[in-house]
């Protein structure tokens, strides 16, 4: 049915007008640019999605205002061992470690150790009730805009990050902490020498 043209080229209209051709060249460039851009974006997204919680390097700096209005900045705490704990009142495993964290804090609070509780995506009322319930006395504040948790790439709560006296990260713990892991890590970090 269909006629096969031996030379289809002859059938076509002659030369396209010049502006048209320029348009199609720019058009092609734009298309290529957009497609490559999209692929690059997806590749970046893939890298982001595969990121694991931070373990080493300088601990990302942050300033946290506590529920009772005090403000701490991580970089001001050089010389101290800092334990950053991400938690939330709605997270059942957090409750498993809460008492142990507080106990450890009381044990070390006069020995150059600072605990920072970062309350991740939580409502204030249940958060305060949680602090009350476990009689938590270390510094605790809400992670406004979840910026801190993003900078540490947390994957969930609870997660605990160990910061040495010089402000570098020394690993993390995913999931609830149980005795004596935290004590051991703190002792280890405290024993490191530190000079300004």
């Amino acid at each position: 049915m269909t006629e096969i043209n031996p030379e289809p080229v002859d059938q076509t209209t002659p030369v396209e007008p010049a502006p048209n051709r320029i348009w199609s060249t720019t058009g092609r460039l734009v298309v290529v640019f957009l497609v490559v851009g999209l692929i690059a974006l997806l590749a970046w997204g893939l890298v982001q999605a595969e990121k694991t919680p931070l373990e080493e390097g300088m601990a990302p700096d942050f300033t946290l205002t506590s529920f009772d209005g005090r403000t701490y900045t991580l970089s001001d705490l050089r010389g101290n061992v800092v334990i950053i704990n991400f938690w939330a009142s709605w997270c059942p495993p957090c409750r498993e470690e809460a008492a142990y964290l507080e106990r450890t804090w009381r044990k070390y609070k006069d020995k150059g150790v600072i605990f920072i509780g970062v309350d991740y995506a939580d409502a204030e009322k249940p958060a305060l009730a949680y602090i009350d319930e476990f009689d938590i006395t270390y510094f605790n504040g809400p992670d406004l805009g979840t910026r801190i948790s993003q900078s540490y790439n947390i994957k969930g709560v609870p997660e605990t990050y160990y910061v040495a006296k010089d402000g570098t990260l020394r690993g993390n713990h995913i999931g609830p902490l149980f005795e004596p892991e935290l004590d051991n890590r703190i002792d280890e970090l405290l024993s490191e020498p530190y000079t300004k």
Binding site: L38, L41, L42, W44
Partner: peptide, 8 residues
């Protein structure tokens, strides 16, 4: 894909 773009 816009959330990715904003994040980037």
């Amino acid at each position: 894909v816009f959330p990715l773009i904003t994040e980037l």
